[in-house]
Measured scan of single mutants.
Amino acid sequence: MKTQEELTEIVRDHFSDMGEAATLYVQVYESSLESLVGGVIFEDGRHYTFVYENEDLVYE
């Protein structure tokens, strides 16, 4: 099982292909040891929320 830090790095790496991230945040109260819930805000103003669970990243 991966730590939240490892899950955060996986998510950060995925979003790095989409541009320069200004902020990546984790909603600790919705996350667990198995999943990471949060969002990313890019330098150009785009904002996505995400759920990373079971090696699957879903974002909108």
Rank of each mutant, 00 (worst) to 15 (best):
F15L: 04
Y48S: 00
E20C: 14
F42W: 04
G38P: 01
E55I: 06
D44Y: 05
V26K: 00
S32F: 09
S35T: 14
A21N: 13
E60F: 13
T23H: 13
V40K: 00
E55K: 11
L24H: 02
L7H: 02
A22W: 13
Y29C: 11
F50H: 00
V28G: 09
V37N: 03
E30G: 06
V26H: 01
K2T: 05
S32D: 10
G39Y: 15
T49Y: 11
V37H: 09
E60Y: 13
L33C: 13
E55S: 13
T3A: 03
G38N: 02
D17W: 14
L36A: 03
V58R: 14
S31C: 10
S16A: 12
Q4K: 10
T3W: 06
G39W: 15
L36W: 07
I10P: 01
V11Q: 02
V58S: 10
F42S: 00
K2R: 08
T8N: 04
L36G: 00
Y59H: 04
Q4N: 04
S16K: 14
T8G: 03
D44E: 02
L33F: 10
L57W: 06
H47E: 06
Q27I: 15
E20F: 13
R12E: 03
S31T: 06
F50S: 00
D13I: 14
L7Y: 02
Y52C: 11
E53F: 11
V37D: 00
T3R: 06
L33Q: 10
S35L: 15
I10S: 02
V11L: 07
A21S: 11
I41N: 00
L57P: 01
Q27Y: 14
A21L: 15
D13G: 12
L36K: 00
Y52M: 04
L57G: 01
L57T: 01
M1D: 06
G39L: 14
Q4H: 06
G45F: 07
S16Y: 09
F50C: 05
M18A: 05
G19P: 04
T8F: 11
Y52L: 08
V40Q: 01
Q27R: 06
N54F: 09
A22T: 11
E20N: 13
I10W: 07
E9G: 07
L7Q: 02
D56H: 15
E34W: 06
H14K: 12
G19I: 05
Y48C: 08
D44Q: 01
L36P: 00
Q27E: 13
F15T: 02
E60K: 11
E6W: 09
E20Q: 12
F42G: 00
Y29A: 04
L57A: 02
L33Y: 10
F15H: 01
L57S: 02
Y48W: 06
D17H: 15
R12G: 04
E6D: 07
N54C: 14
Y59S: 03
M18K: 07
H14G: 04
D44L: 06
V51C: 08
M1I: 12
E60T: 12
M18Q: 05
T3V: 03
F42M: 07
E9C: 12
M1L: 13
T49P: 01
Y29M: 04
V26E: 03
H47V: 08
E43H: 09
V28N: 10
Y59F: 13
G45Q: 01
T8K: 09
D17E: 13
A21Y: 13
G45S: 02
G45K: 01
H47N: 03
L33D: 08
T49C: 14
T23S: 09
V28Q: 11
D13V: 12
S31D: 07
L7K: 02
L7G: 01
G39N: 06
T49E: 05
I10D: 02
F50P: 00
E53N: 08
V37W: 10
Y25E: 05
L36F: 08
Y29L: 05
N54W: 06
Y48N: 01
Y29W: 11
G39R: 08
R46M: 04
E30W: 12
F42P: 00
H14T: 06
T49H: 11
T49V: 11
I10Y: 06
V40D: 01
M18C: 13
D56L: 15
G19W: 06
D17C: 15
G45R: 00
M1R: 06
Q27A: 10
A21P: 14
T8R: 07
V40W: 02
R12F: 08
D17F: 14
Y48G: 01
H47F: 07
T8S: 07
R12L: 13
N54K: 09
R12A: 07
E6M: 10
T49R: 06
R12Q: 06
S16G: 08
D56C: 15
V51F: 08
E55A: 11
D56F: 14
L7N: 03
V37T: 10
H47L: 06
F15I: 04
M1H: 13
V40C: 08
G45L: 03
V51K: 10
V37Q: 08
Q27W: 13
A22G: 10
D56A: 15
H14L: 15
E43I: 10
T8E: 14
R46E: 03
E53K: 13
E34S: 14
F42R: 00
I10R: 06
E30K: 08
N54L: 07
H47D: 01
